[in-house]
């Protein structure tokens, strides 16, 4: 019996780590982007992709709202799995966007918030890759947590 509970606890670790990390990252950046909404919108307008620049206002509201919804979903056991899928998709899209812009343009404006402002573009890609891997691992384990 003890062996079974120890095994199930081991299975919970990646889910706990991924969930807590994603809650902190999405919660922090979403709040920061909503408070400094004008700055985020301005930074989006500087991105040399016409679709993003033209719809900067809409995107600057939708992205932090999606992040907030995902944060809440990750907190609740019932919606954690869809939350993890959503977080992985959002991180994946961000990764594609980062790589595509890095390959095609120089001197890109940084649309990040808080601590991540200090990161270089390469650091962003590394952090993103780690988070995506952790989320995929958590989805694969799909452990049911107590909360």
């Amino acid at each position: 019996m003890d062996k079974i509970s120890a095994l199930s606890r081991k299975k919970e670790v990646p889910t706990y780590v991924a969930t807590i990390l994603l809650i902190i990252i999405f919660g922090y950046t979403a709040t920061n982007k909503l408070i400094s909404h004008d700055r985020f919108q301005f930074q989006l307008q500087l991105i040399p992709v016409s679709f993003i620049a033209r719809n900067a206002f809409f995107i600057s509201l939708v992205i932090p709202l999606i992040e907030l919804v995902l944060t809440i979903a990750l907190c609740l056991n019932r919606y954690r799995l869809p939350g993890l899928f959503g977080a992985t998709t959002l991180l994946g899209l961000f990764q594609i966007y980062l790589v595509a812009l890095m390959v095609n343009y120089k001197n890109l404006p940084c649309t990040c918030a808080g601590i991540s402002l200090e990161l270089s573009w390469i650091d962003h890609i590394i952090l993103n890759t780690l988070l995506i891997s952790l989320s995929i691992l958590a989805i694969r384990k799909n452990a049911k947590l107590k909360f």
Binding site: T19, I20, I23, I24, G27, Y28, T29, T31, N32, I35, S36, T71, I72, L74, C75, A113, G114, F147
Partner: peptide
């Protein structure tokens, strides 16, 4: 506790911003 983590993070983001 995860909701507590979320609320703390949001509060921290507000204060730091």
């Amino acid at each position: 506790p995860l909701i507590l983590v979320m609320l703390t993070t949001i509060l921290l983001a507000v204060i730091l911003t």
